[in-house]
Design a protein around this nucleic acid. Sequence first.
RNA 1: GGCAGCGUAGCUCAGUGGUAGAGCAGGGGAAUCAUAAUCCCUUGGUCGGGGGUUCAAAUCCCUCCGCUGCUACCA
Length: 573
Amino acid sequence: MTRFLITSALPYINGVKHLGNLVGSMLPADVYARFHRAKGDDTLFICATDEHGTPAELAALETGQDVATYCREQHLIQADIGARFGLSWDFFGRSSSVQNRELTQHFARALWKRGYLEVRTTKQVYSHAEKRFLPDRYVIGTCPYCGYDRARGDQCENCTRVLDPTDLINPRSAVSGSSEIEIRDSAHLFLKQSEFVEQLRAWIDSHEADWPNLVLSIARKWLDEGLKDRGITRDLEWGVPVPDDIGDGQLKGKVFYVWFDAPIEYIGATKEWSDARGKSDADWQRWWRPASPADVTYFEFMAKDNVPFHTVGFPVTILGSGENWKLVDRVKGFNWLTYYGGKFSTSQKRGVFMDTALELLPADYWRWYLMANAPESADSSFTWEHFASVVNKDLADVLGNFVNRVTKFCAARFDGQVPAEGNYGAEEAALASELDRRIAQYAEHLEQVEFRKALAELRAIWVAGNEYLTRAAPWTAIKTDRAKAAVGVRMGLNLVHLFGHLAWPVIPSAARVIHDAIMEAPDIIPWPTEPMAEFLDQLDAGQAVRVPDVLFAKITDEQVGEWQVRFGGEGVS
RNA sequence: GGCAGCGUAGCUCAGUGGUAGAGCAGGGGAAUCAUAAUCCCUUGGUCGGGGGUUCAAAUCCCUCCGCUGCUACCA
């Protein structure tokens, strides 16, 4: 049976991530990983912080810390928030780890030996004020086309023209504002991606059936436009150093480009995981260099801006190495989650970030809303009104109230114990067969990573519970026919138990509380594999049942209004 | 400019050739176990505009409009 290797795009080290980052990679990867663990599959879910690059260096500078200290602190912050969001990483690594440095250098050496790397001299902007080279977008000046005076060196945000830093009038550093900048020659390593076009195209075509349209079209676009060789080194301090034996000594003091080493950290973090447990290399290599590729199904989750790096850049690294590393099997790409139709923005304090989200409400509220409205086919817009209505209806009314009404009625009329009287009949058989069908659908949607559809189906399963309860009406039956009422309550309690199982991949904390009401939940709440006729008839008569506290409190209009103001809501853009 | 995705009910979205769908919101009813929750019934759309192919188009082709993003040194 195949093992499931799951990676989420690496959150960049520069600050706490917002809900859009969460729903675009980490959260769906977590739901999928939990689903496979629940099914009993051998599953490994890997993530890490992406720590190299100019923004990290500048952010450290701003806080007055050295970059290594800054990254260490930020990594711990992100690890903590991820854990509190229920992100069940088997390991959350760091792209600045020793393991990743060694692996990155290993891949570079393999590519160099096979002739896929080449040294080329490029023109780079050097700023005297910062005593450092600046990426194009960190140079600003006046746009020669439209006159906008804060155009970036890579593109003018005003007229959207693509620019080169040398095009700018009055160029200056975006960091210090200093105009003491000059263009210097700098040698860099280029990865000959152009030699892999046919190989990549054949590989991408082979996934016609199992990659989403969004991913296929982005990947093909890059090939169709003519794949260029890509510079994979930078003039920075912080990063994986280029080893002396590569590049004939022309690259002393340079580091690899963050997009070269970041995907390799998927492997690096797996080695970090293995090393942390004191295991041998075979332990992590069984995931990345399996005896047969079919032994492992490798699944990547990411937002659409990351698709080219995962379907073109990283595969070239793997293929070019000539070694038997695992290539990705399935890719799930997401569009953007917007905030009232606009961008989430750290600098403008616009939108909701993971830390503040948890100050407002528990993780499951967010997990449910985000996955039920995941930006799968198009960008989707977060609004407080929509969030409140989804949470109130789905979680509080349909699910929470079901658990509450069943357990409370049981407590009031059956001493809080699973009643023994009566036998299941046609009504219960019909429900079991409906649920067999719906659960199979729910599982299929999860396997196909159609999260909106999956969660709609899960909600329909909860609704089926409410429908059954209305038909069984134990509150009426109890007046004349205690056995009939007992049947309804017993089925209701079995349904509560079932819901605890089915909800676990999506809302793990609430699922645990629900399960605990019936019996103590295991760490991994398993997927129900029995036919429902059997599963829904498993509670022992006489066993005690607890009434859990209110599972989901409703979000009030006052809260919606307050949060709109606090986070920049409607009309703000 | 080029490219990609999207445009379907008031809102959020399914639906890729065969009589327009779901959830929410709105309207009516039932029930009273429950977080006033639930359940049943129901109103509502010339499928962005225009043209074409076809016995038949939301779906295929052309064109125009709008929104969002990408355009390779941000990550």
